[in-house]
Write a protein that binds this DNA or RNA. Structure first.
Lengths: 109, 109
DNA sequence: TTGCTATGTGAGTATATACTCATATAGTAA
DNA sequence: TTACTATATGAGTATATACTCACATAGCAA
């Protein structure tokens, strides 16, 4: 059985995973891969309301995935832990595997 | 701006991330790290209803994180892509970074 | 000061997710 | 056949999340 120490750890890990688990947030992470950006430019790039983007950004800050700083009127966001990007290389492998399995299935049918 | 090809990719990636983003599912992944298991043993290990665990497992199968096979009455689940575990090593680094930042903050106060 | 811009947040709604209980299905064994 | 076990799923409820619109706040410039 699980002890309470592990339960706490799993909750924290889930929070980080949740911070990534949304198409818009993944689009934002991909945009920030090339460098820090303000909310307005992020919103324009992903094609969504600033208020909505602002909320998604704060989810990622809370999850520890992004950090921010003020610069005049603007708030600049950037990746806090570059290894987040490694996650996407694993995700690519999962997708490749799925594609291979689908191909195999198609050949059977 | 994003093109529709990217939007589709981000949605697929988000599905995979969502498949991981739950404390119970992370507990299950940690349990399966050491080898395949049936639903009943997984449910006992994580301390939750079998019906609930069964649903969480199907979320992870749909996300491509797990695969399953029947063996008599039992259904055996196992990790499909071991690199999923790398994600948790990145998550550990995020948590370490958070801990360091908190420490820094405490020293200021 | 006033006016403008960038960001954040409250309120409301819509949708998605998690959980429980009851039931259905599939396989085993007598 | 019947009885039992493991798993999956429908229905209902509770909670969480996403989104939009309106408004508040903070900083810049005139």
């Amino acid at each position: 059985m699980l002890d309470s120490r592990n339960v706490l750890l799993f909750e924290k890990q889930a929070q980080i995973a949740k911070a990534i688990a949304h198409p818009l947030r993944i689009a934002i992470l991909n945009f920030l891969k090339d460098g820090e950006q303000c909310v307005c430019d992020i919103a324009e790039h992903v094609g969504s309301e600033r208020s909505n983007v602002s909320r998604h950004l704060s989810v990622m800050v809370a999850g520890g995935v992004l950090k921010s700083r003020k610069e005049g009127l603007k708030v600049i966001y950037e990746l806090r832990t570059p290894c987040i990007l490694e996650f996407f290389s694993c995700v690519s492998r999962v997708l490749e595997q799925q594609a291979r399995d689908n191909e195999k299935l198609l050949r059977i049918l």
